[in-house]
Simulated assay, not measured.
Amino acid sequence: MTRTLVGLIMASSGAAWAHPGERHGDVGDALLHLMSEPDHIALLMAAAVIGGLGSLMMRRRAPTTRTFKG
């Protein structure tokens, strides 16, 4: 019970925020932040590489269509 209570208090505290004290005004500011921080850019690049590799793997697994001449 005590561990759960401490966990809930810590999760709701300001120390649990990714960027303490930072508030974005609108969607444009949030996107600018995501595209300008090095840690966010690295995560976006990793997601793009993993997504590209996944699409290549799915393309190779897709059955090929055959046309019948006859």
Rank of each mutant, 00 (worst) to 15 (best):
M1H: 14
M1S: 15
M1W: 15
R3N: 06
R3Q: 04
R3K: 11
T4K: 12
L5C: 07
L5H: 05
V6G: 04
V6C: 09
G7R: 02
L8G: 09
L8H: 06
I9A: 01
I9W: 09
I9F: 01
I9K: 09
M10S: 05
M10D: 08
A11H: 00
S12V: 02
S12W: 05
G14F: 03
G14S: 12
A15L: 11
A15P: 02
A16Q: 06
H19R: 08
P20N: 03
P20Y: 03
P20F: 03
E22H: 14
E22D: 13
R23T: 13
R23V: 14
R23Y: 11
H24C: 08
G25V: 15
D26Y: 02
V27W: 00
G28D: 08
G28P: 00
G28V: 08
D29M: 07
D29Q: 07
D29V: 03
L31V: 07
L31Q: 08
L32T: 11
L32H: 13
L32G: 12
L34S: 03
L34N: 06
L34T: 06
M35E: 04
M35W: 00
S36N: 15
S36L: 14
S36C: 13
S36P: 13
S36R: 14
E37F: 13
P38C: 09
D39S: 09
D39N: 10
H40C: 12
H40N: 14
I41L: 10
I41M: 11
A42W: 03
L43E: 09
L44P: 03
L44T: 02
M45S: 09
A46F: 09
A46Q: 15
A47D: 06
A47T: 08
A48C: 01
A48K: 00
I50D: 01
G51E: 01
G51W: 00
G51Y: 02
S55P: 05
S55C: 12
L56A: 06
L56G: 01
M57G: 03
M58I: 06
M58D: 03
R60E: 10
R61Q: 15
R61E: 15
R61N: 14
R61V: 11
A62Q: 10
A62W: 10
A62T: 12
A62C: 09
A62V: 00
A62K: 13
P63M: 02
P63T: 04
P63H: 12
T65H: 10
T65F: 11
T65P: 07
T65Y: 11
T65M: 10
T65E: 11
R66E: 13
T67C: 11
T67S: 13
T67F: 15
F68W: 14
F68N: 14
G70H: 00
G70C: 01
